[in-house]
Nucleic acid binder design. Structure first.
Lengths: 214, 214
DNA sequence: GTCTATACTTGGATAGAC
DNA sequence: GTCTATCCAAGTATAGAC
């Protein structure tokens, strides 16, 4: 493998490289600053200073491009958060991680884009299914962690991990959405603080519950 | 007051009557069946079999009309759920009520419309503020109930009622949104079942916690 | 692969007759 | 207040030159 091939491989994200990646980055940026409603082919092309027609040449449609952006940030998030998440074992660690993830999502605009695409999926049914499929891996990831955490506790019988995971992801998007609407991030921060306090409680209680089991 | 005036008063909802109400109903229906993205002036006029121009004569813009619809269902929900909600005193009563409300919201399409408008508010910043203002009363209503419920328990110090209320409403919308995306209501039902089971637990624990307080 | 030019569509909104 | 006709803007998408 020569030098060029190496650098190309390094640049590949979600199967995108070169112009396609450049277009996707411009779309991501537009989604961040102008929202889904403002992410037209013209706006995206303006943002990236390339020709509008390129979008259709490379992605077929604006819709496909925006879904590709969703794949792109999904991959980036999975790479960045996945390993740490899998490693976390206690409730306080997870609460802490939630705070980090929320902060990074916010800073990089990932959460904006995720929220925009999920919202757009609600208002447009045909998009909805595509977006849902891309959210699914995240629910499953949370589910695995919930299973691990509740394993051997009485909560195992009380709540199906899949339901809890769905609820937690729903909560994440719900908070993002309402914070976004009210243009106020302070409420989300308060809730993350609350999660930290609760996680300490959970951490103190869970082990004793595990011991009580046969 | 004559008979006509009485019937007019009875028909007034959110300040709408006659043609305006008719237009709003058509808009509501369109929002339910075609989503926000499909709720164009032409689509709404087609749904209600009236002239497109009437929308602009009576509401000034499609946007205003859709916000009027949000006011309309907000008022209807407040009338239908408000009294029962205010009366509820225990966690199981509230869990039960949540189930009823979710089911009714679903059946009447209120939840669809709410979700559509909130989602639209996310993708369109200028709409967002208006939608946020219309969600606010619901958060406050939940907040008052949370205050009442936690009054005299150690949780009072742990979590601000306002935060909890914001979290609960976020959860409601988040669940609605993801259920909507996946076109699967079963997960929402499971979570309502879980809420019922948890409420029994809370109900058993809260009184003893209250007694422990000085 | 990229650019220019343009066809086509949809939707918001208004003017003016009735 | 309601209808017809129409304007205008914005957006998707394509054809064809380079």
């Amino acid at each position: 493998m020569n030098k060029r091939a190496l650098s190309e491989a390094a640049d590949k994200e979600a199967g995108l490289s070169g112009t396609k990646l450049q277009i996707a980055e411009a779309a991501l940026q537009t989604l961040k600053t102008k929202g889904f409603a403002g992410a037209s082919a013209r706006a995206i092309a303006g943002e990236g200073s390339f020709n509008q027609a390129l979008i259709f040449y490379h992605f077929g449609s604006v819709r496909n491009l925006l879904l590709a952006v969703l794949d792109l940030i999904s991959e980036r998030r999975m790479e960045e958060y996945g390993p740490t998440f899998e490693r976390a074992r206690t409730a306080p660690e997870l609460a802490d991680l939630a705070r980090t993830i929320y902060a990074e999502d916010l800073e990089r605009g990932y959460i904006t884009v995720l929220g925009e695409m999920v919202s757009a999926g609600v208002t447009d049914a045909s998009l909805g299914a595509e977006v849902a499929a891309r959210i699914e891996p995240w629910i499953e990831m949370v589910q695995r962690k919930v299973e691990q955490l509740l394993n051997g506790t009485p909560f195992q019988a009380l709540a199906a991990p899949r339901d809890l995971a769905f609820g937690l992801v729903s909560l994440y998007f719900g908070i993002d959405m309402l914070s976004h609407l009210q243009a106020d991030q302070s409420r989300a921060q308060s809730l993350l603080d609350l999660a930290t306090r609760l996680s300490v409680l959970v951490d103190a209680v869970l082990p004793s519950l595990r011991e009580e089991m046969p």
